[in-house]
Nucleic acid binder design. Sequence first.
DNA 1: GGTGTGACCAGCT
DNA 2: AAGCTGGCCACAC
Length: 110
Amino acid sequence: MKTHDEISFFEKVYAVVEMIPRGRVSTYGAIAAYLGSKGASRMVGWAMNNSHKADPSLPAHRVVNRIGVLTGKHHFGSPGMMQQLLENEGIMIKNDQVQNFSEVFWDPGS
DNA sequence: GGTGTGACCAGCT
DNA sequence: AAGCTGGCCACAC
């Protein structure tokens, strides 16, 4: 009965986040649902928190909440760094909110 | 093995 | 209208 012998939920989250195309953003709920745990949206954010030491190169700045608000911007070391990174990829942000969210939104199942 | 937690989501007051 | 609480799941101690 193998437990999570190969990879943990966190690793899955990292993989999904890492495959987010440049110039696109995803949401915690979408990633959690893609992994099969719709209600584990909080876990995704938590995985990101751990990702700092697990995988610093993880583009966590491309992950926002369901309405496109940079909820975790404060966790990047600098509150404005997340927005700057997103704008650098061509994503427009206003008041910590992603503009044209429906257009830049990327579904992991897509 | 129980408890706490967490960058959410949705509903209730 | 806006704020808050609960629920949800998986991981760490």
